[in-house]
Design a protein around this nucleic acid. Structure first.
Lengths: 357, 357
DNA sequence: ATGAAAGCGCTAACAC
DNA sequence: GTGTTAGCGCTTTCAT
């Protein structure tokens, strides 16, 4: 009968089917110990009444919720969103729902209420998808022992104290720089992300290591710092042009800053790539259509989220089987060079062949 | 005492404080009818044991969860992510948590399991942040009467049957076109988004209306269709160049396609904006650093999410006060023209002055 | 194979 | 002011 808008409960189903609530429960949970005809009768009532068991009641009694807590920041940027995209897909696959929290800023340090909210709702595990910035992760040294459920950190320095999944940023910085070195460049500048960001630091270290190993200078005059935005890339390049005018190549910490730098270079009358080779980082799909198409380091940010879900679910399972003493995870996702015109290595190249997206 | 990792319950607090659970409950809910000293004593125990009430148990008894269900799609694109960003911020403000589901594709039509998951967890309201594409919303004509909680649709055609919050896409298309018309252009092409998308259609209608009102042609040869990506913009422009070579201006359905089109135009030897004026849509912050900087229609996608949360929360409140018969909402967010170099209206312009971001 | 009773953690309704 | 009782919707013993 349509018209009733009250929630259907297990009791009503039981009554309607002429059995006890446990029997209905058994049918719901596909237990073997139900007579086939009883099962059928109950199932019919369930279908007819469109009964949907309450996940809330289940969570209460089972002391677990089939929910993962996801804490993120900066969803108005494409990077964190892609990671979240990977998280949602994999969580769906594995049958977990997502309780989402976005920190008001990247450096938020008052995380206790966030955690409390998540824990109060009985999430089975947590994915901390906020990059490590300054000391914003230090608080976990104190808080973590209080948390009884698995938690995985994204884009965070590895530590024996917690589980980490991250892009190999240092390797990425190295690959970018080696690409420029192999094209004969020696005066390679670096447009770094904010020095408070661990990921930015890693990329910078990769640049420095490659430079030093090749026997070339990698000093402070060769570095300018941006805040990841194209606008900051524009400004930082102006600064770089003053303090290191002899540069012939630039490794930018991300594609947006590379875009801003190229924009400024053009205004300064510098031709890219003829007078300045540029390599970015991230592998935005738009970067293939920049002018010139941007050589960049691609990393799969969805994959990051995907792995995080898989691992946290594995840890949840392990905890239930009381497999204690899990080794702390340190999973690295390897980045990949995409060569396009901006680095001048292939003078005229068909960008479609060099794009992996 | 540290070391205990069992969840602290209201019972333990009650026992420890020497009161009944009821009194603890009263303290938790800040009821007036507790003696000050009792309150203090209970609060001390709560603090000492770090007791956190179970939101799950509360949801069960109160039959509401303080959670909003959010259904989205395409989080690997920046648009949906920005909207989600607006949703998370406002939800945080209003004290609601978010249960997130991402559809595997934009056109997913088997939404019943998604809704069931949300409803099983007692969400108090739903924000359907999936744009209207083809007939992917038709199913709601059937499903909606079954749903007892408020639900708001984003980027969907208005209807007396449901609540909608959307950008005024038609107006945006109109503004873009009028901008080009006012610069003297008559042969204005349109690079449309997928015709199955309602938003793409609206932008196209805006273009057509403006053209027709100005007394100029707006026929099929002037239109090519892309899939929002830069790559598709590149391809579609090639097609446009064949079927409508006399064009002097182009209105692209989004900034990425505009980027792809400009890229292709350059390869075809067409100078932008001298030989081809271009206007985009969305107002990506990077578009200020395209070459040339892109004139575009900015719309605040975070604001969309923000409004959706505010309204759904309002509807939840109204439902609790049994204020029935809410008028169906149709909220339009107005877009805004950002003039930069690509449209050739200001020959040399300082982009910083024309950017609102 | 099925049912009765107890209880997950909390709160509403009523005592006192 | 505070405690007692009952119950939200479900599952888990333990009978039968």
């Amino acid at each position: 009968m349509p018209g009733y808008r009250q929630r259907v409960t297990i009791k009503q189903v039981a009554k309607e089917a002429g059995v006890s609530t446990q029997t209905v429960s058994r049918v719901l949970n596909e237990r073997p110990d139900v007579a086939p005809d009883t099962r059928q009768r109950v199932q019919d009532v369930i279908d007819r009444l469109q009964y949907k068991p309450s996940a809330v009641a289940r969570s209460l009694i089972r002391q677990q919720s089939n929910m993962l807590g996801v804490v993120t920041a900066g969803l108005n940027y494409i990077g964190p969103s892609r990671t979240l995209n990977g998280i949602t897909n994999e969580a769906e696959q594995l049958g977990f729902m997502l309780l989402l929290e976005e920190l008001p800023g990247f450096s938020t340090i008052d995380i206790q209420p966030i955690l409390d909210n998540l824990l109060a709702r009985q999430v089975d595990g947590i994915i901390w998808a906020v990059p490590e910035i300054g000391d914003n992760h230090d608080v976990f040294r104190v808080v973590l022992p209080e948390i009884t459920i698995p938690i995985i950190f994204l884009s965070t320095q590895a530590s024996p104290d917690w589980h980490v999944v991250t892009t190999n940023n240092r390797k990425g910085g190295r690959i970018a720089t080696e690409h420029l070195l192999s094209a004969g460049h020696r005066k390679i500048a670096h447009l770094a992300g904010p020095s408070t960001w661990w990921e930015a630091t890693e990329r910078r270290v990769g640049w420095r290591e490659a430079m030093v190993e090749a026997g070339f200078a990698a000093i402070d005059e060769q570095i300018a710092e941006g805040n990841w935005s194209a606008a900051s890339g524009d400004r930082a390049f102006e600064q770089l042009y003053e303090q290191f005018p002899q540069m012939t190549a630039l490794f930018a910490g991300n594609d947006q800053m590379a875009l801003g730098a190229i924009h400024r270079a053009r205004r300064l009358g510098i031709r890219v790539p003829e007078e300045l080779a540029v390599v970015g980082f991230d592998g935005l799909s738009e970067s293939a259509y920049f002018s010139p198409p941007l050589t960049t380091i691609y990393h799969d940010q969805q994959q990051l989220g995907c792995i995080a879900v898989r691992e946290v679910v594995r840890l949840i399972g392990a905890a239930q089987n009381s497999d204690e003493n899990q080794e702390s995870l340190d999973i690295l996702v390897e980045p990949q060079l995409i060569v396009r015109e901006s680095s001048g290595v292939i003078p005229v190249c068909n960008h479609k062949n060099s794009s992996i997206i």
